Computed example of a mutant assay.
Amino acid sequence: MSHLLEKAAARGDLAALERLLDAGANLEWQHKGTGRSALLAATIAGHPAAVSLLLERGANIHQRCTALGYNALTWAAYNGDLTMARLLLEHGAELDPASPELQRTALMTAAQAGHGPMVSLLLAAGADPHRLDFQQRNAWSLAEEKAHAAVMQLLQQAGSQAPPASVEPAVLPWPEPLADEASDADPVAQVRAYTLALAAWEQRGNSLGHEALDAGFWAEPQQLIERFCTQRPRAYARASYGYPSTYSPADELLACAQLKPAQAEVLIRDPAARALCYEHRFLLKRIAGQWRIDSVKRRLAGTQKWANAIL
């Protein structure tokens, strides 16, 4: 029943909301995939009457979705929905809580989207224009990135400007390329050899086009697994390629640590020029004197949460 509440909220169906709430539907039920509650669904869909009803019945105004970590006010800011934002502020929505991973506030989201009236509303309510996100950007620099000149001017009038340049992590030199089998003796060389081989495979797929690819092409990722990785069972096989490719010859080496005599960790990062820059953490095991990649995790550079990635 509670999942029907979220659906009714997304439709703005007040009669259904009243009926379901009276029957005991859980106000704080969240969609398993998106993490949207009824309040979030009504906010995103732009139904202020439904939002008012849910708030009057006790909905948590601070609840976040799981996909982006946005609360109701941040979603209203993203949509440029002034009516919704005023309603939420009147009911006590906090101005500056940031999303857990991206560290984005409602003001940052509105600035990046170029919603000048929303930026004005949030600033007048006391939003902090100096807060920094996961990439050490503030609302002004997010607006600058999208060339929203009018929004930049509003933020400048509020005392905001370009944030200080962030300190980039030290980059280590890659080892000189080794003969094919020689990379087995060094974890960094093994990671480099694997990522270059996979990058070449993806780039070849991008250049040839899907229709020109044969069974031999699709067999290559498994051959790379057999060459560079441990042979444990894996839940997913690589069955796609894309642009930009997962790895690049311009990837940067950030760190290498031997965790145990037969276990090492190698951390690399996408080329810094990429708009979305990911870090990749490889775990390697030494088996019969040879280093083999066992698993890899990745995260957006600047965030904290690692997620499993497909080799």
Rank of each mutant, 00 (worst) to 15 (best):
residue 94 E to C: 02
residue 104 R to P: 00
residue 151 V to A: 09
residue 92 G to I: 03
residue 133 D to S: 05
residue 83 T to K: 13
residue 122 L to W: 00
residue 110 A to L: 00
residue 132 L to P: 07
residue 147 A to V: 06
residue 119 V to H: 10
residue 142 L to R: 15
residue 82 L to P: 04
residue 85 A to L: 09
residue 129 P to S: 12
residue 79 N to V: 01
residue 151 V to L: 04
residue 150 A to T: 14
residue 81 D to C: 03
residue 116 G to L: 15
residue 155 L to A: 07
residue 105 T to E: 03
residue 134 F to R: 01
residue 149 A to C: 02
residue 105 T to D: 13
residue 89 L to A: 07
residue 152 M to F: 12
residue 145 E to I: 03
residue 106 A to V: 07
residue 136 Q to F: 10
residue 108 M to C: 07
residue 132 L to S: 07
residue 96 D to I: 07
residue 147 A to M: 07
residue 136 Q to T: 05
residue 138 N to Y: 03
residue 106 A to H: 06
residue 90 E to Y: 04
residue 133 D to M: 06
residue 144 E to I: 01
residue 106 A to K: 08
residue 100 P to R: 10
residue 145 E to G: 06
residue 125 A to E: 14
residue 94 E to D: 11
residue 104 R to E: 12
residue 101 E to Y: 03
residue 138 N to K: 05
residue 119 V to L: 12
residue 97 P to R: 05
residue 140 W to L: 07
residue 91 H to P: 01
residue 126 G to L: 11
residue 146 K to A: 10
residue 106 A to M: 07
residue 83 T to I: 09
residue 129 P to V: 10
residue 111 A to I: 02
residue 139 A to Q: 01
residue 124 A to Q: 14
residue 113 A to Q: 15
residue 102 L to Y: 10
residue 88 L to P: 04
residue 97 P to C: 08
residue 150 A to Y: 02
residue 132 L to W: 13
residue 137 R to I: 01
residue 83 T to L: 09
residue 158 A to D: 09
residue 117 P to K: 06
residue 113 A to H: 11
residue 91 H to W: 13
residue 133 D to R: 04
residue 155 L to S: 03
residue 91 H to N: 09
residue 88 L to R: 06
residue 153 Q to F: 06
residue 132 L to Q: 09
residue 104 R to I: 01
residue 147 A to P: 00
residue 86 R to Y: 09
residue 123 L to P: 00
residue 152 M to I: 07
residue 85 A to K: 02
residue 86 R to G: 02
residue 106 A to W: 00
residue 129 P to F: 15
residue 148 H to N: 10
residue 131 R to H: 12
residue 88 L to Y: 12
residue 146 K to M: 12
residue 136 Q to C: 04
residue 116 G to E: 15
residue 133 D to V: 03
residue 95 L to G: 05
residue 100 P to E: 09
residue 128 D to R: 06
residue 112 Q to H: 13
residue 106 A to G: 07
residue 85 A to V: 08
residue 104 R to A: 03
residue 95 L to P: 06
residue 98 A to C: 09
residue 132 L to I: 08
residue 101 E to V: 01
residue 80 G to L: 00
residue 123 L to V: 05
residue 111 A to N: 08
residue 110 A to S: 06
residue 141 S to D: 05
residue 96 D to A: 08
residue 114 G to D: 09
residue 132 L to D: 08
residue 112 Q to K: 13
residue 105 T to W: 03
residue 156 Q to L: 05
residue 127 A to D: 11
residue 154 L to R: 14
residue 126 G to H: 11
residue 154 L to E: 04
residue 79 N to I: 01
residue 106 A to I: 01
residue 111 A to Y: 08
residue 95 L to W: 13
residue 159 G to T: 09
residue 129 P to N: 13
residue 107 L to M: 11
residue 88 L to F: 08
residue 86 R to A: 11
residue 134 F to P: 00
residue 158 A to C: 11
residue 115 H to E: 11
residue 99 S to A: 14
residue 81 D to L: 04
residue 140 W to N: 01
residue 112 Q to P: 01
residue 112 Q to E: 15
residue 86 R to S: 12
residue 155 L to D: 02
residue 120 S to E: 15
residue 83 T to F: 04
residue 145 E to R: 14
residue 132 L to M: 12
residue 139 A to M: 12
residue 140 W to A: 00
residue 122 L to K: 00
residue 93 A to S: 15
residue 105 T to H: 10
residue 155 L to Q: 09
residue 157 Q to A: 14
residue 103 Q to M: 09
residue 93 A to N: 00
residue 144 E to A: 15
residue 147 A to E: 13
residue 118 M to W: 14
residue 112 Q to R: 15
residue 157 Q to G: 10
residue 136 Q to K: 08
